[in-house]
């Protein structure tokens, strides 16, 4: 459970970096206050005893619908590719990214 504002600032900074978001240094204190109030509001739920209750991942209680395994062309290929900022022939082109660097 996150308690201190400094912890929250750390969480915000980490989340921002994972989400590739950036803001000015003052931003993290500003968000910290807001996030802290949201978290403490939601934290009231922790007072409930939920042992023995299955985790709920969805509010709807039915199972997923399934589709048959039939392939067909979407016809949207060109439209999708035209939205790419950079292309080379049939490829989408991106700045080189090697994992770990």
């Amino acid at each position: 459970m996150i308690k201190k504002t400094s912890d929250i600032k750390e969480v915000i900074e980490k989340t921002a970096s994972l989400a590739r978001l950036s803001f000015e240094s003052s931003g993290s204190s500003r968000f910290a206050e807001k996030v802290e109030s949201v978290l403490s509001y939601v934290a009231q739920l922790n007072e409930l005893d939920t042992s023995g209750i299955e985790p709920t991942s969805h509010a709807v209680l039915v199972g997923s619908g399934l589709r048959e395994d039939k392939a067909h062309d979407s016809g949207a290929k060109d439209l999708i590719l035209s939205a790419a900022p950079s292309r080379d022939g049939p490829f989408i082109q991106v700045p080189k990214v090697i994992e770990g660097e």
Partner: peptide, 12 residues
Amino acid sequence: HDYGHPDMSHVD
């Protein structure tokens, strides 16, 4: 990688 351009990667 290295598909024609040293600083770019191609995505399929």
